[in-house]
Simulated assay, not measured.
Amino acid sequence: MPADRIAAVRARVGARGFSAHVSAAVERQLQRGLLEELLVENERQAGPIPRETHDRAARAFRAAEAPADHETGSPAVESGSAVEEDAWRDRRAG
């Protein structure tokens, strides 16, 4: 891992929390990989998700994130943005 990332993690969680933080990040990445595999397999078996369904789900996720962003004071994530959706579709097609 690059030294600047190690320093950033330690600055955020402290030296004692480093291992737990990295372990949790690895777990999330593994889960994302498994989810992506399941989505690909589902699409292979059932065909692509209809555009209308995809758009409805993207709107629902944005709506669900908005209250959480407001509570934490963090800026809204561009989840469901055209750029993000295109990148997701490109990964799935590739």
Rank of each mutant, 00 (worst) to 15 (best):
1 M>Q: 06
2 P>N: 05
2 P>M: 01
3 A>D: 14
3 A>H: 13
4 D>P: 13
5 R>N: 07
5 R>V: 09
7 A>M: 06
7 A>R: 15
7 A>Q: 10
7 A>T: 07
7 A>P: 04
7 A>F: 07
7 A>N: 11
8 A>D: 06
8 A>F: 04
8 A>S: 04
8 A>N: 06
9 V>Q: 01
9 V>S: 00
9 V>P: 02
9 V>I: 13
11 A>H: 08
11 A>V: 00
14 G>T: 08
17 G>Q: 02
17 G>V: 06
18 F>H: 05
18 F>C: 04
19 S>K: 04
20 A>M: 04
20 A>H: 00
20 A>R: 10
21 H>T: 07
21 H>N: 06
22 V>I: 14
23 S>L: 05
23 S>A: 12
23 S>P: 01
24 A>Y: 12
24 A>W: 15
26 V>L: 15
28 R>L: 10
28 R>C: 05
29 Q>A: 12
31 Q>C: 08
32 R>P: 01
32 R>T: 08
33 G>E: 11
33 G>L: 13
33 G>P: 02
34 L>C: 10
34 L>S: 10
34 L>P: 02
34 L>N: 10
34 L>K: 14
35 L>G: 08
36 E>R: 15
36 E>P: 00
36 E>V: 08
37 E>P: 00
37 E>M: 14
38 L>F: 04
38 L>I: 00
38 L>K: 15
39 L>M: 12
39 L>W: 03
40 V>K: 14
40 V>N: 02
41 E>T: 03
41 E>A: 15
41 E>S: 10
41 E>W: 00
43 E>R: 14
43 E>P: 03
44 R>W: 04
44 R>T: 05
45 Q>D: 01
45 Q>G: 00
46 A>W: 06
47 G>C: 02
47 G>A: 03
48 P>Q: 07
49 I>V: 15
51 R>M: 01
54 H>Y: 09
55 D>I: 00
56 R>Y: 09
56 R>C: 06
57 A>T: 11
58 A>H: 07
59 R>V: 07
59 R>Y: 01
59 R>S: 14
60 A>F: 10
61 F>V: 15
62 R>C: 03
62 R>K: 14
63 A>F: 05
65 E>Y: 08
65 E>C: 13
66 A>F: 02
66 A>I: 00
67 P>C: 02
68 A>F: 08
68 A>H: 05
69 D>K: 11
69 D>Q: 13
70 H>K: 13
72 T>Y: 07
73 G>H: 09
73 G>C: 12
74 S>C: 12
74 S>F: 08
76 A>G: 09
76 A>W: 01
77 V>A: 15
78 E>C: 05
79 S>Q: 06
80 G>W: 12
80 G>D: 09
81 S>N: 06
81 S>V: 01
82 A>T: 03
84 E>A: 08
84 E>F: 07
85 E>I: 01
87 A>K: 07
88 W>G: 03
88 W>D: 09
88 W>L: 12
89 R>Y: 04
90 D>K: 10
90 D>V: 01
90 D>N: 07
92 R>P: 04
92 R>M: 15
92 R>W: 04
94 G>C: 02
94 G>T: 13
